[in-house]
Design a protein around this nucleic acid. Structure first.
Lengths: 195, 195, 195, 195
DNA sequence: GATGAATGAGGCTTCATTCAT
DNA sequence: GATGAATGAAGCCTCATTCAT
């Protein structure tokens, strides 16, 4: 990749970051291309040099978030760790990632409200990939006898729901820091599976 | 209340229902006054006879939803039931209400994205009232020794997050009916508190 | 049709007239919705109340023009007139209509530059209907021995081309009035067919 | 002219050809500088090295077309040929040129829609030069008794209109080749002048 | 000479809102 | 009470044009 291309790639990421943070704050529909550009001291026109349209920007940003999440989870899954610690780590990283990126949009919102056609398929597919990782961990835990026998799908969704909800209430609760909070939540959620 | 007023009140509720269902499907910003009116075979102009503006319609609809939820929870709290059963019933009713109304908006979204000033205060206040009920149940459970000692705030938010997330994935999971599903979820969530 | 509907229909026609005259002057792409509205002392928004979008306005206006032309030609064809006089009348009316409406767009421009899909089909179909009328007249003239044997398609297109070109040069030639000019042109064109 | 200048001149012609072909297909306003550049595997920026702006490119391209047409017609006029054959050859070459270049734009569209000021003057002047040639041929034919007495201006415009219209319908009529078609059309048009 | 990047004006379109009837 | 009609602000997007490298 040439220097030019690297710069362009960097710019794209900046724009995505800008979009992500404003979408997290205002929601997708209330976010204007003007907002996204202004935050980077650019003009609207420039954003359109890098992204075809608003939908394209949304799609790319969500894709990036999901791919990062998947990378996070796969990295943990490839480690040699006891199943319990593994699942907990997955949860902690998920929550920390959410809080850092200030957006639960990628995992939280109904994708069919924002995507259609091929984009929808791709987003759904990425989400499923992520979900499957969690399912696998739960299944492994059950098999190995460390976890209670549970309905995997339901418990996975309880976990996802509880985690994604964090960004709705985190800011107003300053008593614990990010990491402590993530630990706490994951501890509580593990109780569904253990004992 | 005169007959005329009753009729108007009924109409208002119809409009709110229409708004609620479309917002649940498309999101607030993507919902137009036209949509809301068309669903009732009305014209936009008529809606403005009953509601000052779109924001007013949103506010009233969310308020209604929250007040209904609070009524639901208070009704249960006033009953003579063992604490465990009480909390479970609260959860079951919450989930069923969500699925029936097809909207987790009221409890799920960050209110400051949609409200400001007095409206925001009122919405927050209603939400807190609801949250406090759950907190109270948890606290009672702990005091009476039926529940483990937990951080009330965190566990309450785990419960809310897990429950509100249901509408994101319910439709795609037809294996259980509404009530069964609600039971399952509440069972799992109770494990956080019991043993 | 109610009074309301009549008024709306009238308004639509006014807008179409406005669009037609500006398109005739500037061309389609250079014509803005602002222009069309301003000419009628309306705002852009109002135009959108009557027409879905710019393309819709273009389509409806061209359709109207073509339908009017077809009505003109069919009216003449249904009369009891010698074939020569019939064809001449068709030409005269065509030219006068063109000059009056100040637009040769409908018959002159390549439709695939402006329409696609169903709209294109409909426009082509209307044009063909018009062309077929002329073809029929030519064929009848040949059959009855009043016209020379010619390639109908080519001669029809010569006639159409010559007539439609009038609006490109009419204004700069004030020596003859509309009707005289139309007569002259049709006389000359008939020489292709007679003797 | 230096080698460098020659190269630049060649490039300019390539760009003009590209512009011409796209304008013929889409119309001027729908043609973007991007389109013109892309067809030559250039970037927009490069086009601006050779042409001041889009208007300049349009002007130069139309001028080139007109000058070529004038050269064509003057070449024929300077030949020793019977007047009838001369006019016919003019028509045939005109039609073939049109079909080859796929654009009737230069002769067909109202110049005041696209040009103003000095450019408009120059374009009009070139067109007149072309028109005058045809007028002269008609006048000579009349004088020499080979042609009927006709209103020169009107007949010239009939001829131009009929010829320029060819590009609107040629492609859909594959039965005759370019040259045959041009012959046919000119034969028919000559009937206006002869006998 | 060429180009990637940026700009800004302008046009299309949507939609909450108003109001006369 | 209801509605057809109108409005205007705001947002999306395109594209001619410029310019540093």
């Amino acid at each position: 990749m040439s220097l030019r291309e690297k710069k362009a790639e960097k710019k794209k990421k900046e724009i995505i970051q800008s979009a992500l943070s404003i979408i997290a704050e205002k929601g997708y529909h209330a976010t204007t291309m003007e907002d996204v550009a202004a935050k980077l001291l650019m003009t609207k026109g420039s954003v359109y040099y890098y992204f075809k349209d608003k939908q394209d920007l949304l799609f790319k940003s969500q894709k990036m978030l999901l791919e990062q999440s998947i990378q996070n989870i796969e990295e943990i899954m490839s480690k040699e760790l006891p199943i319990i610690e593994k699942l907990q780590k997955v949860m902690v990283v998920h929550i920390e990632f959410l809080i850092t990126e200030r957006t639960g949009f990628a995992m939280g919102a109904r994708p069919d409200q924002f995507f259609a056609g091929d984009q929808l398929q791709e987003i759904i597919s990425l989400r499923q990939k992520y979900s499957h990782c969690i399912d696998k961990l739960i299944a492994q835990g059950i098999e190995s006898g460390y976890f209670n026998k549970v309905d995997t799908k339901i418990v996975r969704n309880i976990i996802l729901g509880a985690m994604n909800y964090v960004i709705e209430w985190y800011s107003s609760d300053g008593s614990k820091d990010k990491n402590e909070l993530a630990k706490s939540i994951s501890d509580y959620l593990l109780r569904i599976l253990i004992n």
